[in-house]
């Protein structure tokens, strides 16, 4: 019965997602057109990467507020390194993100600083570092070195960023469901004291998820630079909240212990679609919905999911 409920919850996002796609397809021409689909996937791949890292962090019961500014900082570093080629640019951006993640991880696991505070510090530090490195300006990337391929290129007619996101989600899902690491993540989030008493490597698990989240934010930064042709130190504002929202809409409990990689992807796509549909709606010219509406709609989705979650948590507590 409870698994059915869990299934319904994860599938619930998928159902809403499909309904939204159906709505768009019926209402707008070109909604299901190749251009819209591919550019939608290309753009949202960045958010998908960040949300994947966030998903693991939240499943341990933690939070990572630094992802947005880490992505911005990494985009600057990737842009600086981009003349040396795709791989150096990619590695530099990813490494920058990983560095922030490791720093967060050290603060949280070694110095026992609350994740909220530690990653808030990480957020401010990464943001400042990005602005400092870029002197408050966008840093153009090299178009000759092939760096932009990773954001703008296609393989088999499908955007490379989307391929990357799919690969990351497959690995993430595998790790969550078929590796001890994934189960330990859920155990730590489901009861840290119990996990410790069970002899699980709690600190190592926590360290790993924050490092991973930083790495994902770094990869998103590389995407940002490659897709838009510039390292952008002022981007990334609010991305952390958007990715937390995606994760939660995907049914992952904010308190940790329950979560799904696949449903997180659904959450990203669902919240991304709200924006996409608003664009189409405005394009029709019948009504002019300001961009603010997307925040309101996203907020509404988030609230509904959180209400459902808190009821579930209540039931668990009653049974415990």
């Amino acid at each position: 019965m409870n698994f059915a409920m869990q299934l319904l919850r994860s599938q619930g996002v998928l159902v809403v997602l499909l309904l939204l796609i159906l709505f768009g397809a019926l209402r707008y021409d070109h909604f299901l057109g190749q251009f819209n689909i591919l550019s939608f996937l290309r753009y949202n791949a960045m958010f998908a990467l960040i949300a994947l890292g966030m998903c693991f962090v939240i499943m341990t019961g933690g939070i990572d507020l630094s992802v947005g500014s880490t992505a911005a900082m990494s985009s600057v570093i990737a842009a600086y390194v981009s003349p040396y080629g795709l791989l150096p640019g990619l590695v530099a951006g990813a490494a920058a993100g990983l560095a922030v993640g490791v720093l967060n991880a050290i603060l949280i696991t070694r110095l026992n600083i609350l994740p909220f505070i530690a990653t808030l510090a990480g957020m401010l530090a990464a943001s400042g570092t990005g602005l400092l490195l870029a002197h408050n300006e966008s840093i153009g990337v090299s178009y000759d070195s092939g760096f932009t391929d990773i954001g703008q290129g296609d393989v088999l007619g499908f955007p490379i960023p989307a391929w990357l996101a799919i690969l990351a989600y497959l690995l993430g899902s595998l790790a969550l469901n078929y590796l001890p690491f994934g189960r330990n993540v859920l155990a730590v989030g489901g009861g840290e004291d119990a996990a410790r008493l069970m002899g699980l490597p709690v600190d190592r698990v926590k360290f790993t998820v924050y490092a991973l989240s930083g790495l994902m934010a770094g990869l998103a930064g590389v995407q940002l630079a490659a897709q838009f042709g510039a390292g952008q130190p002022t981007e990334g504002v609010g991305w952390e909240l958007f990715s937390i929202a995606s994760v939660v809409v995907g049914g992952t409990l904010l308190t940790g212990g329950v979560g799904s990689v696949g449903a997180t992807l659904s959450g990203v796509l669902l919240l991304g679609l709200v924006f996409n549909i608003l664009n189409f709606e405005n394009g029709m010219g019948l009504v002019s919905l300001r961009a603010h509406w997307q925040s309101i709609l996203r907020g509404a989705f988030l609230l509904i999911v959180v209400i459902i979650q808190s009821r579930l948590a209540l039931r668990v507590r009653r049974n415990a």
Partner: peptide
């Protein structure tokens, strides 16, 4: 322990095997 120190959200199987997973081909 007095307070049951298991993980309520995880399955019975997991609660028994956490920390001592059985694997095949490196996967659970």
């Amino acid at each position: 322990y007095q307070e049951i120190n298991l993980i309520p959200f995880r399955s019975v199987t997991e609660n028994i095997f956490l920390g001592r997973a059985l694997k095949r081909y490196g996967l659970l």
